[in-house]
């Protein structure tokens, strides 16, 4: 019913309007637009598939519960990431998920896989205030303005944390970077 046009913002408006009018099936359309990105973001924060699925599911359930308040004014995407982030932080607090679980392996050559795990682990070891901008800007490709909205901070503050975070990550990775395949 909704997937006839390619323009995401047009679709986003239609789905949000449909949801506000009580058509819960529009949730599937929003999920088609943003589900993968939210899952990926949650997986990278939580490090395991089950929790990432839970966080993704709950993020969209919250969209449904607040359907009457949501506006397609360009801020929906950042709101979605903010909800996902808060849910992930709650889960991390609940389960104290500090270690990279065994399932967080990736395909590719052995050297590249090792580097990816090293990068992910080093990222997890950074203070949360550095992790967030790196995840949103460098991994999820959000603009500085969008990432600042997700984190509810100013753009200069976001950039400052992003730049410091990159330097901190570089220091943690150390010589690993020199051995990149």
């Amino acid at each position: 019913m909704f997937d006839l046009m390619g323009d995401d913002s047009f679709l986003e408006r239609r789905y949000l309007k449909a949801l506000a009018e009580g058509d819960t099936s529009a949730l599937e359309g929003l999920h088609a637009l943003y589900g993968e990105r939210i899952f990926r973001y949650a997986y990278r924060m939580l490090g395991n598939r089950t929790d990432a699925e839970d966080a993704t599911s709950e993020t969209f359930l919250r969209v449904l519960r607040r359907a009457h308040e949501l506006k397609a004014d360009g801020a929906f995407r950042t709101w979605l990431f903010r909800i996902a982030r808060n849910l992930c932080i709650d889960k991390m607090r609940q389960h104290k998920l500090l270690e990279l679980p065994p399932e967080a392996h990736y395909t590719g050559t052995e050297e590249k896989s090792a580097l990816r795990v090293t990068v992910q682990q080093a990222l997890k070891d950074l203070p949360q205030e550095y992790q967030d901008p790196l995840r949103l800007c460098d991994l999820e490709d959000l603009s500085a303005k969008e990432a600042a909205q997700v984190l509810d901070i100013s753009v200069p503050a976001l950039k400052s944390r992003l730049y410091r975070g990159r330097r901190a990550l570089r220091d943690k990775l150390g010589s690993t970077l020199d051995r990149r395949p």
Partner: peptide, 25 residues
């Protein structure tokens, strides 16, 4: 560092994961 982050492969959102998310709904 930025390149290493960007090359950090995204975990796949498999059809099984999507099914589980929709089942929860």
């Amino acid at each position: 560092v930025v390149q290493a982050l960007r090359e950090s492969e995204a975990p796949a959102y498999t059809s099984e994961s999507i099914d589980r998310v929709k089942l929860a709904w």
